[in-house]
Amino acid sequence: MNAVLKSAANDTAWPLQARGIVHAYEGRYVLQGVDLTLAPGSVLGLIGRNGAGKSTLIRALLGLLQPQAGEAFVFGEPALRMSDASKVRIAYVPQQPDALAWLSAAQMFDYLSRFYPKWDRAYAQRMLDRWQIVPNKVMAKLSPGERQRVDLIRALASQPDLLVLDEPVAALDPVARRELLREIALRAGEQGATVLFSTHIVSDLERVASDIAFLHEGKLLLHCATDDTKECYARLWLPADQAVHVPADALSRRRHDDGSVSCVVARDAGARWPDAANRPGARIDALGLEDLFVEIAE
């Protein structure tokens, strides 16, 4: 028993942890009890429809918003009372960055480099060049896309142990997007950085995410390793005369006009599909993450 208690106390090492986060806006519940733990070096892709509450969850995880219930921890400290030592280890890029808009990118980088002990000046300079940002232009005059690119460079140049990106790819063209994904993948894989990024572009996440979580109707569904998700879930289609055999624990079910049914099912502990998959005419289709997401979110 002591050992169990002890290991629970050691969980303080998790870069991010949340328990039972609940939040509502004007009486509409956005988060309905979200639990989440990010292991060091993992890359979690958070998928959800527009308005699913991804940004709210991210803000609650980082202590930028006080949830109505539940608590979040960053490197073991309560997110709402984080120490400065922890704050310099994290970098967060919001969907619409607007901080320090009266400075130019060069001025902001110069200012921030004094606070971040691991600030990589050469990287920041190189990326401004690559992503074609005029370093001396006041940021308020940059386009929203340029502004977000500056903020991504800012986040990466601080060499954070925890990198949190809210819809980071919207402002990037395909080449820059690939560069960002490469950067995320290598920093996590080689330097042990932990990354959380939200997106509704599922194919980006399939490249780099080690884990995925669907935020749907206020809850996290299918929080597991990306590879396992693809291997463990599939769509089961049953013809009309077999439709009654839809497994009770199917994750979603849809009845088609001809009476046939599709549902999302999971393999059991022995890696077998539910018995219904062996019914006459039944069909199991492997799904990519995007199809899986659509099946469940619809």
Partner: peptide
Amino acid sequence: SVRDVAGFHAINPMTVSR
């Protein structure tokens, strides 16, 4: 190397190692 494959394809190095 794992790094080369991961970098070229912008995929997670852990996936390549696996």
